[in-house]
Design a protein around this nucleic acid. Structure first.
Lengths: 143, 143
DNA sequence: TATTGTTATACTCTATAACTATA
DNA sequence: TATAGTTATAGAGTATAACAATA
């Protein structure tokens, strides 16, 4: 059983799998949105405006990496910088309206992909799988 | 439901998640075994001796990338090159005994991680999840 | 003295384009 | 002429180390 899941995860985590998925998800969304910038958008959508240093651990980059990605997203009009209200060293990264729309579109595309692939499943099985996967990821060997 | 799975997958496919998992899996296995070389080992274990050009599509690299990884694995004693029996242009990449042992150890570690994280699940739910994940990955939006 | 955002630098990994040998 | 393996080169992306400004 552990081996069955291990092999499935191995395939899922393969570079080609991820890249194919990301390409199909970000198609036509502009050059600024890709595998690396999406975590920045996603984290901002999830938690609201944050500073680069604060985002770094969530995104899996250090502050300099967040700065670079944020600059790309800013130039594409998806993110803007605002002065931090209490710390004049910091700047808050904020999703623009276009940024919010981009995140919503990406989440919708992925969800649609998934829903389509579950269409042939018994409804109960699909719902059970969703719950199980959520639990597995949340407190599995990855958290 | 699609959104629940989408968010779980988003976390699973995050770079930090993958890197943490790979680090914990390959700890102490020598410098040659890492996130990039593992797919080469894994593919050879799955399908037997192959040429570099033949492996390329499986591994998600082109032939030059396979060559580089194979050279690293060869220097570490996990892979050896043998002349192709019928095509003198090609070379077969073959797992050495040490290579076989390394693959088995890595699969065992991952399976153990997973089994441990499922220990608290009802046995039926865990088995059902394994089957569902396998199916989802095999003919889901990634295949 | 520590931390923020930013930039320059070095490093890693990749695909592309060559090259030689064989089909 | 095409394909195998290999190597050199260029490109993309990262962390590290610096910098000035603020805490």
């Amino acid at each position: 059983m552990g081996y069955e899941i291990a092999d499935a995860l191995g395939l899922l985590l393969r570079r080609t799998t991820r890249e194919r998925l990301h390409r199909s998800l970000t198609e036509g969304m502009g050059e600024a949105v890709d595998e690396v910038t999406y975590p920045v958008l996603s984290a901002l959508a999830r938690t609201g405006p944050r500073s680069a240093a604060d985002l770094a651990s969530d995104v899996g980059l250090d502050r300099s990496g967040v700065t670079r990605r944020a600059t790309r997203l800013e130039q594409a009009g998806l993110v803007r910088r605002e002065p931090h209200p209490t710390d004049r060293r910091a700047a808050l990264l904020v999703l623009t309206d276009a940024g919010e729309r981009a995140v919503a579109e990406l989440r919708r595309r992925l969800a649609d992909h998934i829903t389509a692939s579950l269409a042939a499943w018994p409804p109960g099985a699909a719902r059970e799988f969703a719950r199980s996967l959520h639990r597995f990821v949340a407190d599995g060997p990855f958290a």
